[in-house]
Nucleic acid binder design. Structure first.
Length: 492
DNA sequence: GTAGGGTTAG
């Protein structure tokens, strides 16, 4: 503890020492506004039109295509990658509309998620031919996609080849690749292959060091994070509030509650301008560790200190009450936040709805779903997934399927989790109808660009064979080999 | 889209 305190006091405080009271509390919603009905109409049109006729359909469609509209449609089609790319490609033939770079970035992101690297690089080349890029953001997207596909070495190579694609390689892009690796927990790799070797060449700055410290914290190695801190000070770089908040969160994540508390006290003692992020971290940290009273006290204390809670602070506190206290109290805080003029966002609704589902109060949860829509905040796919999951867990499979079907009407497409949740639910009771549904869901998810796990394929296959649906099983088996998975040896 | 706080089950 002493060592920690000494280390902290040896660091210079953030400058400026005293900022005016932070007014960064957020009274307005941070949720994106609901998309115009026209967007949903276009999305549905794209979904039901086959690829051959899409170009002509879009050409005739009575709307003025703008970059904004195109980006919104791509975003809505996020969970139907193949259709999203068809839309992008078809519109590329439009006689008067030309894609801008942000739409290219979206399309590249989608191709990367589908692991369709051929399309990805074709798009990059086309972008270059049209002098629209690729830009550093494009490379942030590409490297992130390679890393999340389990190809971090490839991502590093791509980073070093940026200049060959006509894109500058600077400190910012260096920091980006570090961050991409760290966020995927490949901190050792980021450290050994990039940071240690090239920090001199790129003139690593506070941001670079913060990224590395955060990386170590993410894998719960706080001593390494403290080393980074020491190192940056040695190099004459001043830690910032961000640095301290990273460490603080790191202690909580690593379960070092005493260290976290000491660190927080030191921050206060050294008159760092404790900000709303610090308080949110502490409220959440103590709360999830089960120390609800302490979380409560800190939450009350911050206002006295002149730091107003943000929507995120409320979300943290509400989540803590749901998990470690009770939902009623959580709902009181939710109502209190409304009274004070805060606008709940989708995370707020998510934690409350989750809390209600968890104690089996499904009707009340559905009430909140409706309330959300009244607040012009469309439930997102995560919220749908929570509700579907809990209906299925309660063996109310039909209700779960109803909610799933409703998603299609709203502008929210199911994602990989949705399919996994539903498919597993079909196996709770080995009813033949449900096993067929599982098969159909599996086919649909592949069509939409999601790659089911081997386990999922096998489970569905077993189910179909067990209920005598040999032909359907064969179809699934063909699907599996098309997905590039080795088909299991089966007696059909 | 160069860094820190709220959603993610067991």
């Amino acid at each position: 503890m002493l060592i920690l305190a000494n280390r902290l006091s040896s660091l210079r405080p953030t400058e400026p020492l005293l900022k005016p009271i932070s007014y960064n509390y957020n009274l307005t919603t941070t949720t994106s506004p609901p998309s115009p009905p026209q967007d949903a109409t276009i999305v549905n049109l794209v979904l039901k039109t086959d690829s051959q006729t899409l170009t002509r359909t879009l050409e005739k469609y009575p709307v003025e295509w703008t970059p904004n509209l195109v980006d919104r449609v791509l975003k809505l089609l996020w969970n139907h990658g193949p259709k999203a790319l068809q839309f992008f490609k078809s519109l590329d033939y439009h006689p008067t509309y030309a894609h801008v770079s942000s739409s290219f970035d979206h399309a590249i992101d989608i191709a990367g998620r589908l692991r369709d690297y051929k399309t990805l690089w074709t798009l990059v080349d086309r972008m270059r031919t049209r002098r629209l890029g690729p830009n550093p953001k494009t490379f942030a997207i590409i490297t992130e996609r390679y890393v999340s596909a389990g190809k971090p070495d490839r991502a590093i190579k791509i980073f070093f080849s940026m200049h060959e694609h006509g894109c500058v390689q600077d400190l910012n892009s260096f920091n980006t690749i570090l961050d991409v690796l760290c966020k995927s927990k490949r901190v050792e790799m980021a450290d050994n292959k990039l940071f240690k070797v090239f920090r001199g060449r790129f003139r690593a700055d506070t941001v670079s060091y913060n990224i590395m410290a955060n990386g170590w914290c993410l894998i719960k190695r706080t001593p390494k994070a403290l080393e980074v801190l020491k190192e940056m000070v040695k190099r004459g770089l001043n830690p910032t509030m961000t640095t301290y908040n990273i460490l603080l969160k790191g202690f909580f994540r690593a379960g070092q509650l005493k260290e976290a508390w000491e660190f927080f006290l030191q921050m206060k003692k050294r008159k760092c301008e404790i900000d709303v992020v610090t308080y949110t971290t502490v409220v959440h940290g103590f709360g999830v560790a089960g120390e609800v009273r302490k979380a409560q006290r800190v939450f009350n204390e911050m206002i006295g200190e002149g730091v107003l809670p943000s929507v995120a602070t409320y979300n943290a506190f509400i989540q803590v009450l749901c998990k470690k206290d009770n939902v009623e109290n959580a709902i009181s805080v939710f109502e209190e936040m409304l009274r004070k003029g805060y606008m709940p966002n989708s995370t707020t609704y998510n934690v409350v709805i989750r809390g209600l589902c968890h104690v089996g109060r499904m009707e009340k949860a559905m009430e909140f779903m409706a309330r959300m829509k009244d607040d012009e905040c469309e439930p997102n796919v995560q919220i749908y997934n929570v509700v579907i999951r809990y209906f299925c867990d309660a063996e109310e499979i039909e209700k779960g399927l109803n909610v799933f079907e409703k998603m299609g009407d709203a502008d929210c497409l199911p994602n990989l989790d949705t399919y996994n949740i539903l498919i597993s639910a079909m196996f709770v009771r080995k009813k033949s109808d449900y096993l067929l549904t599982a098969g159909k869901l599996l086919i649909e998810m592949v069509e939409r660009g999601f790659l089911p796990r081997k386990f999922t394929f096998n489970r569905v296959l077993d189910g179909l064979l067990l209920t005598g649906n040999q032909d359907f099983a064969k179809e699934i088996l063909r699907l599996q080999s098309r997905c590039g998975r080795l088909p299991r040896r089966l007696k059909l």
